[in-house]
């Protein structure tokens, strides 16, 4: 008898849980779009590199970018510079790519600082080896 009651309780809890999980997915798709013209002036200034594509972006992406842009006033100058350089590429990534990047970033944050530093240095060295430094285009072939 008690086991039946417990089983019913668990079933009821899952019945409540499933729509909630499904709702989290559906919520992304239902988020209404915000036209560029409706953005506050300060957000328009920060998100200016995205003005051209803004109205074609899904509502959930706009909301996340707005939420990210709200952190801008509290950033250090070097962080602002990086933000401005990277925001366009970030916005053009697919949702899956952004999700994967977030997961990897969070994974990195969980490592001890010396390990994080080691991995960052390793990747920067790899990039230096594979890409010419910015502003130094590859030498023109001899005539």
């Amino acid at each position: 008898m008690a086991a039946q009651v417990h089983a019913r309780l668990i079933a009821a809890a899952f019945a409540l849980l499933l729509p909630l999980l499904a709702g989290a997915q559906g919520r992304d798709l239902k988020t209404p779009q915000t036209p560029w013209s409706n953005l506050p002036v300060e957000e328009q200034r920060i998100l200016a590199p995205l003005s051209g594509e803004w109205d074609r972006m899904p509502g959930y992406q706009q909301k996340r970018l707005q939420s990210t842009a709200r952190k801008y006033p509290g950033m250090q100058p070097i962080q602002r510079e990086r933000f401005e350089e990277r925001i366009t590429d970030w916005a053009t990534m697919s949702p899956n790519q952004r999700k994967e990047a977030r997961e990897t970033f969070q994974g990195l944050q969980k490592l001890p600082p010396d390990k994080q530093h080691e991995l960052r240095e390793r990747w920067l060295k790899k990039r230096e080896a594979t890409q010419p430094p910015p502003g130094n285009p590859p030498a023109a072939p001899p005539r």
Partner: peptide, 25 residues
């Protein structure tokens, strides 16, 4: 809000976002 914090941190760290998609990394 969480995504705002997370994305802002990701975009302003030393590594660019494409580093986190690199298979080697």
């Amino acid at each position: 809000g969480d995504f705002g914090d997370l994305d802002a941190a990701l975009l302003t760290q030393e590594l660019p976002p494409d580093a986190y998609l690199d298979q080697d990394f």
